[in-house]
Structures are given as C-alpha cells and as structure tokens.
Design a protein around this nucleic acid. Structure first.
Lengths: 228, 228
DNA sequence: CATGTACTGAGTGTATACAATTATACATGC
DNA sequence: GCATGTATAATTGTATACACTCAGTACATG
C-alpha cells in the first residue's frame, strides 16, 4: 500500500532493531513474558545474539506502542492490562470501527469490495464446518481490509494498534462456535451496508459489532486472567 | 496523576533522550523544521551537545508518534500533514472527545468538576475582554481536564496525542473572536451536561464541538499551508 | 550522446567501552 | 530488632568506533 505507514511496517523486519522489535512484541503477545516482568537489555541481546543497542531501540518503541513501560534508570517492564483497560479499548474501538466503516462506504475500491465479499463467503463456509482456526484468520482479515478501505492512515494506524493489542486477550478468548456464527452474520450485514453505500447504517453496525464482541467476551468470563 | 502514563510524561524530561525528544518535538510543532526536512542524527546531536545515541532513540520515538518518518538506511524526515489528514484527525477526535465526555459523566471527581466550572467562568470573562492568549490556554486546559476525568489511560493518551499533533495546524489557526465566543458556549453546554450526568447529551455535544471547530477551520481557510 | 560501472563520501546501523544510577548485602549504631 | 549507612554488584545511560548501505558522480565504453 504505497509503502508508507506510520508504525507497523516501518519497523523494517530486516534490520536488527526491526527483528528484535518484532520478536519481543510477539513474545509479549504470546505470553512468553508475563505482565510486569522486567526485560533486561543485556539478557535479551544475548539471547538474540545482538548487542544492547538494537534492543534498547526496540524497547523504546514498544514503550510507545504501550506494550512495555520504561522507568528511567530502572528498566523496561511488560505493562499490565486490567479488565477495565480491555473494556476501554473495546469501547474506543466501537467508535473507531464505526467511523472506519463509514469512510469505507465512501472510499472502498472495487478490489477491496470483492475481497470483503469473498471473505464473508469463506467465513460462512468454514463456519458450517467448525474450522475455528480459519475463522479467526478470516476475522482478522475482514477488519484489516476495512482498515485499508477507510483510506485514512491515522485511523488505520490506530485500529491496527488496538487490534494487535487485544491479541493478548483474544488469544485466550478463542471464540465459541455460537459467537462465531453471530459474528459472521454481523460481518455480512456490515458488508452489505457498505456495498449499498449506506454510511449511517454501516457505522452503526460496525460499532455494535464491537460492543457485541465485548459482551460475548464478558459473558464467557474468558479474560479473568486480567482481573486486577 | 499516579506518575504513570504511556507516552507523554514517560519520556522523562531529565534524561538526555527525554530532552532531545522534547526539543525536536517542539521544533517540529513550532515549524523550526519544515515538512519533509531531513533530520540528521549527527547534526542535531552537535547542536544539542550530545552524541548520536540519545538523538537516535528520540527519533525512533518520534516516528511512532507520527511526527517523523524513518526510512531505513536513509534517514529521518518530518512527516507531512495534508488537508485530509487534518480532517481525519478532527473526525476521529469528534468520536473520541464524545466518548471522553460520556465517561467523564461517570467518573469525574468533585475537584475536576470544580476545575471545569472555573475554567468556563474564566473563559467567559476573558472572552468579553478579547484576551485571545488566555482563551487559547483555557481551551487547552478545558480539554485536558476532561482527558483526566474520563478515567481511561488509553483514551487520555490518544486524545493528548491528537491534541498536540493538531498544534501544528492550530498554531496558524488562532481562533477568531466570534469562534471563541461560540466555542465557550459549547464548553458551557458540555460542562452542564456532565454536571447533570447526562451522558448521551454530553457525548453528542462534545462530538459536535469538534465538528464545529473543524467547520470553522475550513471556512476560514486557515490551513491552506497544508494543502497538498 | 547514452549507458553502465566502479568509486567515493555522507549518513545510518551496530557493537562496545565507559559513566551514572540503582539495587543488594552486609555492617553498624541505637 | 530495626533503622541507617556504606560498599559492591548489576543495570541502564551515553559516547564513540567501526561496519554497512546508498545516492551521487566521474569515467569508461558502446
């Protein structure tokens, strides 16, 4: 996409710093490093076979991503996510996903529209078979397509941020079969609203899609881990 | 506020990196560095009397803040802000300021409520006298109080980001007398909705406050500088 | 003249050395 | 026993040296 984005792709995967950044990020998201665990520059550098410099830079970036907190002269620590944080993010996302869908009505390209339609069809197919792995991937893809389609680098950047951030929670909250079915119905409704160019409807549906996802998360009590 | 925040205060003002970060950030916001200007590590380090290391770290952070773009092996460049970017940010802010006002209804403390009321009174006073300097400061303050009152570190962080980001534009768009008057009326309405605990109204008013501010900006054609 | 190629220099990427700060352990005094 | 002080180790903060990349340029070649 024109090779310009704010954060994600910018931490080029081929410099040492970029690789270290990606690695630590994954390790945090996958729970390799627990909350409040200290990340020591020398230790990580040794493990990855690099010096402290790229590790430091990666940590400084992860700080701004919100995944670690750096206390001057003390060190870097994995940030905690409380239940309220999760709720906040879902509510913020509800607004922004709505805005994203609204803008998609205006800016979506033919190719993107086709990609969305294919995505929904595929999801409906895998849903019947109970392929949860593919469904999770398709869900990610659905949202990513919209993030591109909204044609706003800021909104896209923001939503990508929150999306990845919530992986820490969602990894544990693999959707139930029933939620998956409902979720896909909502995707279809959003898709059709966008195809019809109905911006108000698309915004409302996308926003509700988020609050529903959050309700589901809460009802299943799937993130007790993060209760403070 | 409990000494914990994601980005702003985190770049401690007392380490070299923090100082460099703050300095470059200010220089960009104040227009010392023009758009697309290259920021060379050695040159900046020399000017500030520090080595390249803290400069590099500061630049990497500014990249994630969206103020500079780093091209691997090439350098750091001040990002451009297009007219559409400005519009996008205002629309995003419209949603988030609304959410912020909604949450403030729930979480605002007695002290914060008093601070908001005092802020509005003062603004009404200075408005009559045409003290534009104080009005700008009070406007900042009004929003910052709400950012605290919403009780969400994520939302606060996000809104602070955009708020400072827009300084690059607003610096040139010093409000007109008439806009100032209207703006303060809107502040009062928001304040009263929060005091009444009317979340729906507060959210709507705060959101409209943003779209109005943007409309004003456009009508006065005050940011032609940023036209692509 | 156009094109390709090797060279060069400016600038970033990384490693490492050293300084400053903080944490830990232990001794000392009350 | 508890607080306080001090020495030492561990860790981060900063500076610097060196390696690598890339854009531009001069020059050779067709």
């Amino acid at each position: 996409m024109a090779g310009f984005d704010l954060a994600r792709e910018v931490s080029d995967k081929y410099s040492l710093r970029g690789m270290v950044f990606t690695k630590i990020r994954e390790d945090i998201l996958n729970g390799v490093y627990k909350e409040h665990e200290e990340l020591k520059e020398a230790k990580i550098g040794k493990e990855l076979g690099v010096s402290r410099t790229p590790v430091r830079e990666a940590l400084r970036q992860l700080e701004l991503e919100g995944l670690v907190q750096i206390i001057p002269n003390r060190g870097a620590f994995v940030t905690g996510i409380s239940a309220k944080d999760v709720q906040d993010i879902y509510m913020i996302r509800a607004r922004l996903e709505g805005l994203c869908a609204r803008w998609a009505c205006e800016f979506i390209t033919k190719e993107q529209m086709e990609a969305i339609e294919e995505n929904v069809y595929l999801a409906e197919f895998h849903s019947g078979k109970g392929h949860m792995e593919q469904l999770a991937e398709l869900d990610n893809q659905f949202h990513h397509i919209l993030y591109e389609a909204c044609n706003s680098k800021f909104l896209k950047h923001q939503l990508l941020d929150y999306h990845e951030y919530l992986l820490r929670v969602r990894r544990k909250a693999l959707g139930t079969q029933t939620r998956a079915t409902v979720s896909i119905k909502e995707h279809r409704a959003i898709m059709e609203a966008i195809r019809a160019g109905n911006a108000n409807l698309a915004e409302r549906l996308a926003s509700e899609h988020m609050t529903n996802a959050y309700e589901n998360l809460v009802q299943n009590g799937l993130y007790d881990v993060y209760k403070k």
